[in-house]
Design a protein around this nucleic acid. Sequence first.
DNA 1: GCAAAAAAGTTCGCCATCCGAACTTTGCCC
DNA 2: GGGCAAAGTTCGGATGGCGAACTTTTTTGC
Lengths: 260, 260
Amino acid sequence: MKNTLSSTFAGANREYVASLAKGLAVIRCFDHQHTEMTLSEVARLANLTRATARRFLHTLHQLGYMESDGKLYWLTPKVLDLGYSYLASQPLIERVQPYTKELCDAIGESCSVSVLDFPDVVYVARTLSHQIMSVSLNVGARLPAVTTSMGRVLLAARGDEEIDELLAKVSVERFTKHTLVEPAQIKGEIQMARKKGYAICNQELEIGLRSLAVPIRNRQGKAVAAINVSSQPLKVSESKLLKEILPQLREAARKISDAL
Amino acid sequence: MKNTLSSTFAGANREYVASLAKGLAVIRCFDHQHTEMTLSEVARLANLTRATARRFLHTLHQLGYMESDGKLYWLTPKVLDLGYSYLASQPLIERVQPYTKELCDAIGESCSVSVLDFPDVVYVARTLSHQIMSVSLNVGARLPAVTTSMGRVLLAARGDEEIDELLAKVSVERFTKHTLVEPAQIKGEIQMARKKGYAICNQELEIGLRSLAVPIRNRQGKAVAAINVSSQPLKVSESKLLKEILPQLREAARKISDAL
DNA sequence: GCAAAAAAGTTCGCCATCCGAACTTTGCCC
DNA sequence: GGGCAAAGTTCGGATGGCGAACTTTTTTGC
Protein backbone atom coordinates (compact mmCIF):
# COMPACT_ATOMS: atom_id res chain seq x y z
CA MET A 1 0.00 0.00 0.00
CA LYS A 2 1.14 3.48 -0.77
CA ASN A 3 1.46 5.79 2.18
CA THR A 4 -2.00 7.21 2.79
CA LEU A 5 -0.55 10.53 3.88
CA SER A 6 1.44 11.17 0.75
CA SER A 7 0.07 13.51 -1.83
CA THR A 8 -1.08 10.60 -3.96
CA PHE A 9 -3.97 10.13 -1.58
CA ALA A 10 -5.16 12.81 0.79
CA GLY A 11 -4.63 15.82 -1.42
CA ALA A 12 -3.31 15.14 -4.86
CA ASN A 13 -2.67 18.79 -5.46
CA ARG A 14 -0.22 21.58 -5.06
CA GLU A 15 -2.00 23.03 -2.05
CA TYR A 16 -1.23 20.06 0.14
CA VAL A 17 1.92 19.84 2.24
CA ALA A 18 2.47 16.14 2.80
CA SER A 19 5.22 16.72 5.36
CA LEU A 20 2.82 18.40 7.76
CA ALA A 21 0.41 15.46 7.57
CA LYS A 22 3.23 13.03 8.27
CA GLY A 23 4.54 15.03 11.19
CA LEU A 24 1.10 15.19 12.80
CA ALA A 25 0.71 11.46 12.22
CA VAL A 26 3.91 10.91 14.20
CA ILE A 27 2.51 12.87 17.15
CA ARG A 28 -0.81 11.02 16.94
CA CYS A 29 0.63 7.53 17.00
CA PHE A 30 1.52 7.98 20.67
CA ASP A 31 -1.23 6.85 23.07
CA HIS A 32 -1.73 4.91 26.28
CA GLN A 33 -0.48 1.73 24.66
CA HIS A 34 2.44 3.49 23.02
CA THR A 35 3.94 5.80 25.59
CA GLU A 36 7.49 5.55 24.29
CA MET A 37 8.68 4.04 21.06
CA THR A 38 11.74 3.34 18.95
CA LEU A 39 12.17 4.94 15.55
CA SER A 40 11.08 1.73 13.83
CA GLU A 41 7.92 1.38 15.91
CA VAL A 42 6.94 4.94 15.04
CA ALA A 43 7.64 4.24 11.37
CA ARG A 44 5.40 1.19 11.48
CA LEU A 45 2.54 2.89 13.31
CA ALA A 46 2.61 6.09 11.28
CA ASN A 47 3.03 4.23 7.98
CA LEU A 48 6.34 5.88 7.13
CA THR A 49 9.72 4.54 6.08
CA ARG A 50 12.28 4.46 8.86
CA ALA A 51 14.24 7.25 7.20
CA THR A 52 11.15 9.44 7.08
CA ALA A 53 10.13 8.68 10.67
CA ARG A 54 13.64 9.58 11.73
CA ARG A 55 13.52 13.01 10.08
CA PHE A 56 10.20 13.80 11.74
CA LEU A 57 11.25 12.55 15.17
CA HIS A 58 14.40 14.66 14.95
CA THR A 59 12.40 17.68 13.84
CA LEU A 60 9.90 17.28 16.68
CA HIS A 61 12.81 16.86 19.08
CA GLN A 62 14.47 20.06 17.85
CA LEU A 63 11.15 21.88 18.24
CA GLY A 64 10.77 20.60 21.82
CA TYR A 65 7.75 18.35 21.25
CA MET A 66 9.68 15.09 21.53
CA GLU A 67 12.19 13.77 24.04
CA SER A 68 14.52 10.83 23.59
CA ASP A 69 17.21 8.82 25.33
CA GLY A 70 18.77 7.98 21.97
CA LYS A 71 16.80 4.79 21.64
CA LEU A 72 13.24 5.52 22.73
CA TYR A 73 11.20 8.61 21.92
CA TRP A 74 8.33 10.10 23.92
CA LEU A 75 6.15 13.24 23.76
CA THR A 76 6.83 16.27 25.94
CA PRO A 77 4.18 18.45 27.64
CA LYS A 78 4.76 21.01 24.89
CA VAL A 79 2.42 18.92 22.74
CA LEU A 80 -0.37 20.17 25.02
CA ASP A 81 0.27 23.66 23.67
CA LEU A 82 -1.19 22.58 20.35
CA GLY A 83 -4.47 21.50 21.94
CA TYR A 84 -4.34 24.61 24.08
CA SER A 85 -4.41 26.72 20.91
CA TYR A 86 -7.85 25.33 20.23
CA LEU A 87 -9.06 25.73 23.83
CA ALA A 88 -7.80 29.30 23.95
CA SER A 89 -9.32 30.12 20.59
CA GLN A 90 -12.81 29.21 21.84
CA PRO A 91 -13.99 31.94 24.20
CA LEU A 92 -16.75 29.60 25.36
CA ILE A 93 -14.36 26.97 26.64
CA GLU A 94 -12.17 29.44 28.45
CA ARG A 95 -15.09 30.64 30.54
CA VAL A 96 -17.23 27.59 31.00
CA GLN A 97 -15.53 25.92 33.97
CA PRO A 98 -17.01 28.08 36.76
CA TYR A 99 -20.52 27.34 35.48
CA THR A 100 -20.06 23.57 35.34
CA LYS A 101 -18.59 23.77 38.83
CA GLU A 102 -21.54 25.80 40.11
CA LEU A 103 -24.04 23.41 38.54
CA CYS A 104 -22.23 20.34 39.82
CA ASP A 105 -22.25 21.76 43.36
CA ALA A 106 -25.93 22.70 43.15
CA ILE A 107 -27.16 19.30 42.02
CA GLY A 108 -24.40 17.02 43.28
CA GLU A 109 -23.89 15.23 39.96
CA SER A 110 -21.08 15.26 37.38
CA CYS A 111 -21.42 17.85 34.70
CA SER A 112 -19.71 18.22 31.31
CA VAL A 113 -19.53 20.48 28.27
CA SER A 114 -18.76 19.18 24.78
CA VAL A 115 -18.72 20.28 21.15
CA LEU A 116 -19.71 18.31 18.08
CA ASP A 117 -17.00 16.98 15.77
CA PHE A 118 -19.01 14.39 13.90
CA PRO A 119 -19.13 11.45 14.36
CA ASP A 120 -18.02 12.30 17.90
CA VAL A 121 -18.66 14.75 20.66
CA VAL A 122 -15.46 16.10 22.20
CA TYR A 123 -15.31 16.97 25.89
CA VAL A 124 -14.02 20.48 26.49
CA ALA A 125 -14.79 20.86 30.22
CA ARG A 126 -15.78 18.58 33.09
CA THR A 127 -16.58 18.82 36.76
CA LEU A 128 -16.88 15.50 38.56
CA SER A 129 -19.17 15.00 41.53
CA HIS A 130 -18.37 12.72 44.44
CA GLN A 131 -18.90 9.30 43.03
CA ILE A 132 -16.08 8.34 40.77
CA MET A 133 -17.37 7.09 37.45
CA SER A 134 -15.94 3.99 35.90
CA VAL A 135 -14.49 6.11 33.12
CA SER A 136 -12.71 9.36 33.84
CA LEU A 137 -12.71 11.30 30.60
CA ASN A 138 -10.15 13.98 30.03
CA VAL A 139 -10.63 17.16 28.10
CA GLY A 140 -10.27 16.12 24.45
CA ALA A 141 -11.87 12.73 25.02
CA ARG A 142 -14.38 11.60 22.41
CA LEU A 143 -17.64 9.67 22.56
CA PRO A 144 -19.96 8.78 19.65
CA ALA A 145 -22.37 11.66 19.12
CA VAL A 146 -25.38 9.48 18.31
CA THR A 147 -25.10 7.57 21.61
CA THR A 148 -24.81 10.58 23.92
CA SER A 149 -27.30 13.14 25.17
CA MET A 150 -24.96 16.00 24.21
CA GLY A 151 -24.47 14.63 20.71
CA ARG A 152 -28.21 14.40 20.18
CA VAL A 153 -29.03 17.96 21.25
CA LEU A 154 -26.23 19.19 19.01
CA LEU A 155 -27.43 17.13 16.06
CA ALA A 156 -30.94 18.49 16.71
CA ALA A 157 -29.69 21.87 15.51
CA ARG A 158 -29.07 20.41 12.04
CA GLY A 159 -31.72 19.93 9.38
CA ASP A 160 -33.47 16.58 8.93
CA GLU A 161 -31.77 15.99 5.61
CA GLU A 162 -28.31 16.60 7.02
CA ILE A 163 -29.13 14.27 9.92
CA ASP A 164 -30.07 11.51 7.47
CA GLU A 165 -26.78 11.99 5.63
CA LEU A 166 -24.77 11.95 8.83
CA LEU A 167 -26.55 8.91 10.24
CA ALA A 168 -26.06 7.08 6.95
CA LYS A 169 -22.31 7.27 7.21
CA VAL A 170 -21.75 6.15 10.82
CA SER A 171 -21.76 2.64 12.17
CA VAL A 172 -23.29 2.64 15.63
CA GLU A 173 -21.68 0.52 18.30
CA ARG A 174 -24.05 -1.33 20.66
CA PHE A 175 -22.51 -0.54 24.05
CA THR A 176 -25.37 -1.93 26.17
CA LYS A 177 -28.72 -3.61 25.63
CA HIS A 178 -30.28 -0.14 25.78
CA THR A 179 -28.18 1.36 22.98
CA LEU A 180 -30.27 2.56 20.04
CA VAL A 181 -28.64 1.43 16.83
CA GLU A 182 -31.37 1.87 14.19
CA PRO A 183 -30.96 5.19 12.31
CA ALA A 184 -34.73 5.71 12.44
CA GLN A 185 -34.82 5.36 16.23
CA ILE A 186 -31.84 7.66 16.65
CA LYS A 187 -33.39 10.21 14.32
CA GLY A 188 -36.55 10.03 16.42
CA GLU A 189 -34.56 10.84 19.55
CA ILE A 190 -32.85 13.75 17.79
CA GLN A 191 -36.20 15.15 16.62
CA MET A 192 -37.57 14.75 20.13
CA ALA A 193 -34.54 16.66 21.41
CA ARG A 194 -35.23 19.43 18.91
CA LYS A 195 -38.87 19.66 19.97
CA LYS A 196 -38.30 19.56 23.72
CA GLY A 197 -34.96 21.38 23.85
CA TYR A 198 -33.24 18.62 25.79
CA ALA A 199 -32.06 15.02 25.29
CA ILE A 200 -31.87 12.10 27.65
CA CYS A 201 -29.62 9.14 27.04
CA ASN A 202 -30.56 6.31 29.36
CA GLN A 203 -27.85 3.69 29.92
CA GLU A 204 -27.05 3.53 26.23
CA LEU A 205 -23.35 4.03 26.77
CA GLU A 206 -22.95 2.26 30.09
CA ILE A 207 -25.32 0.47 32.44
CA GLY A 208 -26.04 2.69 35.43
CA LEU A 209 -25.37 5.94 33.59
CA ARG A 210 -28.15 8.27 32.50
CA SER A 211 -27.38 11.71 31.12
CA LEU A 212 -29.46 14.78 30.37
CA ALA A 213 -28.22 17.51 28.02
CA VAL A 214 -29.30 20.91 26.73
CA PRO A 215 -27.68 23.07 24.05
CA ILE A 216 -25.55 26.15 24.70
CA ARG A 217 -26.32 28.81 22.11
CA ASN A 218 -24.21 31.73 20.96
CA ARG A 219 -25.51 35.27 20.43
CA GLN A 220 -26.82 34.27 17.01
CA GLY A 221 -28.83 31.44 18.57
CA LYS A 222 -26.63 28.73 17.06
CA ALA A 223 -26.04 25.64 19.23
CA VAL A 224 -22.25 25.74 19.59
CA ALA A 225 -21.87 23.33 22.49
CA ALA A 226 -23.90 21.19 24.89
CA ILE A 227 -23.90 20.86 28.65
CA ASN A 228 -25.01 17.71 30.46
CA VAL A 229 -25.51 16.11 33.83
CA SER A 230 -24.72 12.44 34.43
CA SER A 231 -26.55 10.55 37.12
CA GLN A 232 -27.44 7.06 38.22
CA PRO A 233 -31.00 5.92 37.42
CA LEU A 234 -31.25 4.17 40.80
CA LYS A 235 -30.30 7.32 42.66
CA VAL A 236 -32.12 10.00 40.65
CA SER A 237 -35.54 9.25 39.17
CA GLU A 238 -36.47 10.46 35.70
CA SER A 239 -39.13 12.74 37.13
CA LYS A 240 -36.61 14.32 39.50
CA LEU A 241 -34.25 14.69 36.57
CA LEU A 242 -36.86 16.60 34.56
CA LYS A 243 -38.52 18.55 37.36
CA GLU A 244 -35.54 19.54 39.47
CA ILE A 245 -32.38 19.14 37.45
CA LEU A 246 -33.50 20.18 33.95
CA PRO A 247 -34.42 23.76 35.00
CA GLN A 248 -31.04 24.21 36.66
CA LEU A 249 -29.26 22.79 33.61
CA ARG A 250 -31.19 25.22 31.38
CA GLU A 251 -30.32 28.07 33.70
CA ALA A 252 -26.62 27.17 33.52
CA ALA A 253 -26.78 27.01 29.71
CA ARG A 254 -28.50 30.40 29.64
CA LYS A 255 -25.86 31.93 31.93
CA ILE A 256 -23.09 30.60 29.70
CA SER A 257 -24.85 31.95 26.60
CA ASP A 258 -25.15 35.35 28.24
CA ALA A 259 -21.45 35.34 29.03
CA LEU A 260 -20.48 34.77 25.39
CA MET B 1 14.50 38.86 8.85
CA LYS B 2 14.66 35.38 7.44
CA ASN B 3 11.93 33.03 8.51
CA THR B 4 13.02 31.61 11.86
CA LEU B 5 11.38 28.29 11.09
CA SER B 6 13.22 27.65 7.84
CA SER B 7 16.17 25.35 7.81
CA THR B 8 18.55 28.30 7.77
CA PHE B 9 17.86 28.78 11.45
CA ALA B 10 16.32 26.14 13.64
CA GLY B 11 17.98 23.09 12.19
CA ALA B 12 20.45 23.75 9.44
CA ASN B 13 20.66 20.09 8.63
CA ARG B 14 19.20 17.31 6.60
CA GLU B 15 17.35 15.86 9.58
CA TYR B 16 15.03 18.80 9.91
CA VAL B 17 11.71 19.03 8.10
CA ALA B 18 10.95 22.73 7.89
CA SER B 19 7.40 22.14 6.66
CA LEU B 20 6.40 20.44 9.90
CA ALA B 21 7.69 23.36 11.95
CA LYS B 22 5.75 25.80 9.80
CA GLY B 23 2.55 23.79 10.01
CA LEU B 24 2.75 23.62 13.80
CA ALA B 25 3.43 27.35 13.88
CA VAL B 26 0.19 27.90 11.98
CA ILE B 27 -1.76 25.95 14.60
CA ARG B 28 -0.03 27.77 17.44
CA CYS B 29 -0.76 31.25 16.20
CA PHE B 30 -4.42 30.82 17.16
CA ASP B 31 -5.25 31.94 20.70
CA HIS B 32 -7.86 33.86 22.67
CA GLN B 33 -7.01 37.05 20.82
CA HIS B 34 -6.94 35.30 17.46
CA THR B 35 -9.90 32.97 17.33
CA GLU B 36 -10.42 33.25 13.58
CA MET B 37 -8.12 34.78 11.02
CA THR B 38 -7.68 35.49 7.34
CA LEU B 39 -4.88 33.92 5.35
CA SER B 40 -2.84 37.12 5.53
CA GLU B 41 -3.21 37.44 9.28
CA VAL B 42 -1.97 33.90 9.73
CA ALA B 43 0.94 34.60 7.40
CA ARG B 44 1.88 37.66 9.44
CA LEU B 45 1.58 35.92 12.83
CA ALA B 46 3.36 32.72 11.80
CA ASN B 47 6.07 34.59 9.90
CA LEU B 48 5.30 32.97 6.57
CA THR B 49 4.65 34.32 3.09
CA ARG B 50 1.00 34.40 2.10
CA ALA B 51 1.56 31.62 -0.41
CA THR B 52 3.08 29.42 2.28
CA ALA B 53 0.39 30.17 4.84
CA ARG B 54 -2.19 29.29 2.22
CA ARG B 55 -0.67 25.86 1.55
CA PHE B 56 -0.60 25.05 5.26
CA LEU B 57 -4.11 26.31 5.94
CA HIS B 58 -5.40 24.21 3.04
CA THR B 59 -3.48 21.17 4.29
CA LEU B 60 -4.82 21.55 7.83
CA HIS B 61 -8.29 21.99 6.38
CA GLN B 62 -7.99 18.79 4.35
CA LEU B 63 -6.77 16.96 7.45
CA GLY B 64 -9.75 18.23 9.46
CA TYR B 65 -7.84 20.47 11.87
CA MET B 66 -9.01 23.73 10.30
CA GLU B 67 -12.38 25.05 9.27
CA SER B 68 -13.08 28.00 7.01
CA ASP B 69 -15.88 30.02 5.47
CA GLY B 70 -13.65 30.89 2.51
CA LYS B 71 -12.44 34.06 4.12
CA LEU B 72 -11.73 33.32 7.76
CA TYR B 73 -10.05 30.23 9.17
CA TRP B 74 -10.47 28.70 12.64
CA LEU B 75 -9.31 25.57 14.48
CA THR B 76 -11.56 22.52 14.89
CA PRO B 77 -11.81 20.33 18.02
CA LYS B 78 -9.65 17.77 16.22
CA VAL B 79 -6.66 19.87 17.28
CA LEU B 80 -7.35 18.62 20.82
CA ASP B 81 -6.47 15.12 19.62
CA LEU B 82 -2.86 16.21 19.35
CA GLY B 83 -2.71 17.27 22.98
CA TYR B 84 -4.65 14.17 23.87
CA SER B 85 -1.81 12.06 22.43
CA TYR B 86 0.39 13.45 25.16
CA LEU B 87 -2.21 13.04 27.91
CA ALA B 88 -2.91 9.46 26.86
CA SER B 89 0.79 8.64 26.62
CA GLN B 90 1.31 9.56 30.29
CA PRO B 91 -0.21 6.81 32.44
CA LEU B 92 0.07 9.15 35.42
CA ILE B 93 -2.19 11.76 33.92
CA GLU B 94 -4.84 9.29 32.82
CA ARG B 95 -5.29 8.08 36.39
CA VAL B 96 -4.70 11.14 38.51
CA GLN B 97 -8.13 12.80 38.38
CA PRO B 98 -9.88 10.62 41.00
CA TYR B 99 -7.11 11.37 43.50
CA THR B 100 -7.21 15.13 43.05
CA LYS B 101 -11.00 14.91 43.37
CA GLU B 102 -10.73 12.89 46.58
CA LEU B 103 -8.18 15.26 48.06
CA CYS B 104 -10.17 18.33 47.06
CA ASP B 105 -13.29 16.90 48.73
CA ALA B 106 -11.37 15.96 51.88
CA ILE B 107 -9.80 19.35 52.47
CA GLY B 108 -12.21 21.64 50.62
CA GLU B 109 -9.54 23.44 48.62
CA SER B 110 -8.58 23.44 44.94
CA CYS B 111 -6.04 20.86 43.99
CA SER B 112 -3.84 20.50 40.87
CA VAL B 113 -1.23 18.26 39.28
CA SER B 114 1.48 19.56 36.97
CA VAL B 115 4.68 18.49 35.24
CA LEU B 116 7.86 20.48 34.66
CA ASP B 117 8.61 21.81 31.19
CA PHE B 118 11.18 24.40 32.12
CA PRO B 119 10.83 27.36 32.42
CA ASP B 120 7.20 26.49 33.11
CA VAL B 121 5.06 24.02 34.96
CA VAL B 122 2.21 22.67 32.85
CA TYR B 123 -1.13 21.79 34.44
CA VAL B 124 -2.26 18.27 33.57
CA ALA B 125 -5.17 17.87 36.01
CA ARG B 126 -7.26 20.15 38.24
CA THR B 127 -10.12 19.88 40.67
CA LEU B 128 -11.57 23.20 41.78
CA SER B 129 -13.13 23.67 45.20
CA HIS B 130 -16.08 25.95 45.89
CA GLN B 131 -14.60 29.39 45.73
CA ILE B 132 -13.92 30.33 42.18
CA MET B 133 -10.40 31.61 41.79
CA SER B 134 -9.72 34.72 39.80
CA VAL B 135 -7.92 32.59 37.24
CA SER B 136 -9.37 29.35 35.97
CA LEU B 137 -6.52 27.46 34.39
CA ASN B 138 -7.22 24.78 31.85
CA VAL B 139 -5.27 21.60 31.34
CA GLY B 140 -2.22 22.64 29.33
CA ALA B 141 -1.99 26.03 31.02
CA ARG B 142 1.50 27.19 32.02
CA LEU B 143 2.88 29.10 34.97
CA PRO B 144 6.52 30.00 35.65
CA ALA B 145 8.15 27.12 37.54
CA VAL B 146 10.25 29.31 39.81
CA THR B 147 7.22 31.21 41.12
CA THR B 148 5.04 28.17 41.93
CA SER B 149 5.11 25.60 44.72
CA MET B 150 4.88 22.75 42.19
CA GLY B 151 7.74 24.13 40.12
CA ARG B 152 9.95 24.38 43.18
CA VAL B 153 9.41 20.82 44.39
CA LEU B 154 10.08 19.58 40.85
CA LEU B 155 13.25 21.66 40.54
CA ALA B 156 14.33 20.30 43.94
CA ALA B 157 14.81 16.92 42.25
CA ARG B 158 17.58 18.39 40.08
CA GLY B 159 21.17 18.90 41.18
CA ASP B 160 22.38 22.25 42.55
CA GLU B 161 24.51 22.85 39.47
CA GLU B 162 21.64 22.24 37.09
CA ILE B 163 19.45 24.55 39.17
CA ASP B 164 22.05 27.32 38.87
CA GLU B 165 22.14 26.85 35.11
CA LEU B 166 18.37 26.88 34.82
CA LEU B 167 17.95 29.91 37.07
CA ALA B 168 20.61 31.77 35.10
CA LYS B 169 18.63 31.57 31.90
CA VAL B 170 15.17 32.67 33.09
CA SER B 171 13.96 36.17 33.76
CA VAL B 172 11.63 36.15 36.74
CA GLU B 173 8.52 38.26 36.60
CA ARG B 174 7.52 40.08 39.80
CA PHE B 175 3.80 39.28 40.00
CA THR B 176 3.27 40.65 43.53
CA LYS B 177 5.30 42.35 46.23
CA HIS B 178 5.92 38.88 47.69
CA THR B 179 7.42 37.39 44.51
CA LEU B 180 11.00 36.21 44.99
CA VAL B 181 13.07 37.36 42.03
CA GLU B 182 16.68 36.92 43.20
CA PRO B 183 18.17 33.63 41.95
CA ALA B 184 19.83 33.10 45.34
CA GLN B 185 16.52 33.42 47.19
CA ILE B 186 14.75 31.11 44.75
CA LYS B 187 17.55 28.58 45.02
CA GLY B 188 17.19 28.74 48.79
CA GLU B 189 13.49 27.92 48.51
CA ILE B 190 14.24 25.01 46.16
CA GLN B 191 16.85 23.63 48.56
CA MET B 192 14.40 24.00 51.42
CA ALA B 193 11.84 22.08 49.34
CA ARG B 194 14.40 19.32 48.77
CA LYS B 195 15.15 19.09 52.48
CA LYS B 196 11.57 19.18 53.73
CA GLY B 197 9.89 17.35 50.85
CA TYR B 198 7.37 20.12 50.23
CA ALA B 199 7.25 23.70 48.98
CA ILE B 200 5.05 26.62 49.91
CA CYS B 201 4.53 29.58 47.66
CA ASN B 202 2.92 32.39 49.59
CA GLN B 203 1.14 35.01 47.46
CA GLU B 204 4.03 35.20 45.02
CA LEU B 205 1.80 34.70 41.99
CA GLU B 206 -1.30 36.47 43.23
CA ILE B 207 -2.26 38.24 46.43
CA GLY B 208 -4.56 35.99 48.48
CA LEU B 209 -3.25 32.75 47.00
CA ARG B 210 -0.97 30.42 48.94
CA SER B 211 -0.11 27.00 47.58
CA LEU B 212 1.54 23.93 49.06
CA ALA B 213 3.04 21.22 46.85
CA VAL B 214 4.71 17.83 47.19
CA PRO B 215 6.34 15.69 44.50
CA ILE B 216 4.77 12.60 42.91
CA ARG B 217 7.43 9.95 42.37
CA ASN B 218 7.46 7.03 39.93
CA ARG B 219 8.55 3.50 40.84
CA GLN B 220 12.18 4.52 40.40
CA GLY B 221 11.74 7.35 42.90
CA LYS B 222 12.03 10.05 40.27
CA ALA B 223 9.83 13.13 40.76
CA VAL B 224 7.73 13.04 37.59
CA ALA B 225 4.98 15.44 38.62
CA ALA B 226 3.80 17.56 41.54
CA ILE B 227 0.48 17.87 43.32
CA ASN B 228 -0.61 21.00 45.14
CA VAL B 229 -3.36 22.60 47.18
CA SER B 230 -4.26 26.25 46.78
CA SER B 231 -5.79 28.14 49.67
CA GLN B 232 -6.35 31.62 50.99
CA PRO B 233 -3.98 32.76 53.75
CA LEU B 234 -6.85 34.47 55.58
CA LYS B 235 -8.92 31.31 55.61
CA VAL B 236 -6.28 28.67 56.26
CA SER B 237 -3.38 29.43 58.60
CA GLU B 238 0.12 28.25 57.78
CA SER B 239 0.09 25.94 60.79
CA LYS B 240 -3.17 24.35 59.68
CA LEU B 241 -1.69 23.99 56.20
CA LEU B 242 1.32 22.11 57.57
CA LYS B 243 -0.36 20.14 60.35
CA GLU B 244 -3.61 19.13 58.69
CA ILE B 245 -3.33 19.54 54.93
CA LEU B 246 0.29 18.51 54.29
CA PRO B 247 -0.19 14.94 55.59
CA GLN B 248 -3.25 14.47 53.36
CA LEU B 249 -1.38 15.91 50.38
CA ARG B 250 1.50 13.50 51.03
CA GLU B 251 -0.95 10.63 51.33
CA ALA B 252 -2.54 11.53 47.98
CA ALA B 253 0.91 11.71 46.33
CA ARG B 254 1.80 8.32 47.80
CA LYS B 255 -1.45 6.77 46.54
CA ILE B 256 -0.80 8.12 43.04
CA SER B 257 2.77 6.79 43.15
CA ASP B 258 1.48 3.38 44.19
CA ALA B 259 -0.96 3.39 41.29
CA LEU B 260 1.79 3.97 38.74
C1' DG C 1 -19.44 56.89 -6.98
C1' DC C 2 -15.36 56.10 -9.25
C1' DA C 3 -10.45 55.78 -9.93
C1' DA C 4 -6.22 54.74 -7.87
C1' DA C 5 -3.68 52.41 -4.58
C1' DA C 6 -2.96 49.06 -1.26
C1' DA C 7 -3.78 44.75 0.56
C1' DA C 8 -5.29 40.04 0.01
C1' DG C 9 -5.34 35.98 -2.47
C1' DT C 10 -3.53 32.80 -6.23
C1' DT C 11 -0.47 30.72 -9.84
C1' DC C 12 3.44 28.22 -11.64
C1' DG C 13 8.57 27.71 -13.06
C1' DC C 14 12.49 26.39 -10.63
C1' DC C 15 15.54 24.47 -7.30
C1' DA C 16 16.33 23.32 -2.39
C1' DT C 17 14.14 19.90 0.26
C1' DC C 18 12.81 15.73 1.38
C1' DC C 19 12.54 10.82 -0.30
C1' DG C 20 13.97 6.10 0.09
C1' DA C 21 17.24 2.52 -1.82
C1' DA C 22 21.36 1.09 -0.24
C1' DC C 23 24.50 0.83 3.27
C1' DT C 24 26.18 0.36 8.23
C1' DT C 25 25.35 -0.85 12.89
C1' DT C 26 23.15 -3.26 16.59
C1' DG C 27 21.57 -7.08 18.97
C1' DC C 28 19.61 -11.62 19.06
C1' DC C 29 19.71 -16.64 18.50
C1' DC C 30 21.84 -21.12 18.31
C1' DG D 1 31.10 -16.07 18.62
C1' DG D 2 29.42 -16.06 13.99
C1' DG D 3 25.53 -15.46 11.19
C1' DC D 4 21.40 -13.19 10.39
C1' DA D 5 17.55 -10.17 11.01
C1' DA D 6 16.06 -5.87 12.44
C1' DA D 7 17.18 -1.12 13.48
C1' DG D 8 19.34 2.97 12.32
C1' DT D 9 21.80 6.15 8.98
C1' DT D 10 23.51 8.18 4.62
C1' DC D 11 23.31 10.76 0.31
C1' DG D 12 22.20 11.21 -4.84
C1' DG D 13 18.40 12.63 -7.25
C1' DA D 14 13.17 13.52 -8.15
C1' DT D 15 9.74 16.33 -6.77
C1' DG D 16 7.30 18.97 -3.42
C1' DG D 17 7.11 23.30 -1.81
C1' DC D 18 9.04 28.16 -2.34
C1' DG D 19 8.03 32.91 -3.44
C1' DA D 20 8.14 36.41 -7.26
C1' DA D 21 4.83 37.88 -10.10
C1' DC D 22 0.21 38.10 -11.24
C1' DT D 23 -4.96 38.71 -10.39
C1' DT D 24 -8.64 39.95 -7.43
C1' DT D 25 -10.66 42.36 -3.62
C1' DT D 26 -10.90 46.05 -0.41
C1' DT D 27 -9.85 50.58 1.10
C1' DT D 28 -8.89 55.36 0.39
C1' DG D 29 -9.48 59.99 -1.28
C1' DC D 30 -12.12 63.49 -3.48
